[in-house]
């Protein structure tokens, strides 16, 4: 069935989002830089390589365990720059605020944006505010854009063209915390949990690895659509395959429990502080070690490798030794009936 209107699934980061981007946005904005579809656009201005990105934040609830909409708005954009290999420098921000929104909440949000920017070492240098009638938006929506500078040697990280068979796939820690923290913070579920969002700026963790001279071949932050979406996007159309070992994935007990109750697969649940990194096999150990030295990488682990078999597909060896395919999420992950 063809959709003739926008559905929530079009914003889920999965297959429907993909279709929307290809069939509408790329169709009209059509240019070689956009077509790369990397986390950040890579620009060359007067012989300086620049990474440029933008993201809008509409998270509900705006305050959740481990962060708030402001913290995410800074971390998300910083991370999009950092995974491109860039050093994030400046952010802009735009606020769309619903009439009647308490000023004290706005102040908490803005303060955490400032704190997060300071931690990341970026400046928020320009902004915009719009207020809309009550009911015309849900409390507050935030957009941030960011730019960073990029060393010429790191230009290929975004596209991953240097990925080769035998390379190792690494993630900096446990998955699915953010999505589950948000779900449990929504009152409608009535689940009380200790799960906190992993929302954090990853640029220092990433630069520790990149600056050490390790040849990082690919990076992507596993946000909407989760780890599975990053992996299946990466494999899609390539002449190599991905082999993932479920035993290497860390999922906390409360997150596992909640996923079991709701019928979710943690691999498809959003993260806000996780980077998937691909390095040469010989660099894998030292990458893990460098990550382990940073609080955001204490649980870093190798989760799989690039293989010659099943080109274009990601395969996971399940905890019991069975095998299954990793595919992109279609629409929102829905709780099951029984």
């Amino acid at each position: 069935m063809r959709h003739n209107q926008v559905l929530l699934g079009h914003g889920s980061g999965g297959k429907l989002s993909h279709d929307l981007i290809t069939n509408i946005f790329i169709k009209y904005f059509n240019n070689p830089i956009l077509k790369q579809q990397t986390d950040s656009a890579l620009l060359n201005i007067e012989n300086q390589h620049i990474a440029y990105t933008t993201d809008s934040y509409v998270v509900d609830p705006i305050f959740f365990p481990g962060g708030n909409i402001g913290k995410i708005a800074v971390a998300g954009t910083v991370n999009d720059l950092a995974v491109s290999g860039a050093k994030p420098l400046y952010l802009s921000t735009g606020f769309i605020i619903e009439e009647g929104f308490p000023l004290k909440y706005l102040e908490i949000i803005v303060k955490s944006m400032a704190d997060e920017a300071e931690k990341a070492g970026v400046l928020i240098v320009t902004g915009d505010t719009k207020v809309v009638d009550k009911g015309k938006c849900d409390k507050v929506f935030i957009n941030t854009s960011g730019i960073g500078v990029l060393n010429e040697k790191l230009l290929d990280i975004s596209s991953g063209v240097n990925i080769g068979i035998g390379d190792k796939i690494i993630i900096n820690g446990r998955i699915a915390d953010h999505g589950m923290a948000i779900l449990s913070a929504r009152n409608e579920l009535n689940i009380r949990s200790t799960i906190e969002s992993d929302c954090a700026c990853l640029n220092h963790l990433i630069s520790a690895v990149v600056d050490s001279g390790i040849n990082v071949k690919f990076m992507r932050d596993a946000t909407r659509g989760g780890l599975a979406t990053v992996l299946s996007e990466l494999a899609s159309g390539k002449n190599y395959g991905l082999s993932i070992d479920e035993a290497g994935l860390i999922v906390s007990e409360p997150v596992k429990g909640m996923c079991e109750i709701l019928g979710f697969d943690p691999m498809y649940v959003a993260n806000e502080g996780k980077v998937v990194m691909i390095v040469d096999e010989k660099d894998a150990r030292s990458t893990i070690k460098l990550m382990n030295d940073n609080p955001l990488g204490r649980e870093a682990s190798i989760i799989g490798e690039i293989v010659g078999e099943h080109p274009g597909k990601g395969w996971i060896t399940t905890g019991i030794g069975g095998k299954r395919i990793i595919d992109m999420l279609a629409g929102e992950q829905l709780p099951r009936i029984c």
Partner: peptide, 9 residues
């Protein structure tokens, strides 16, 4: 059965 890859075993 599918999620754990049981048929492959």
């Amino acid at each position: 059965i599918q999620k754990f890859g049981i048929p492959s075993l």
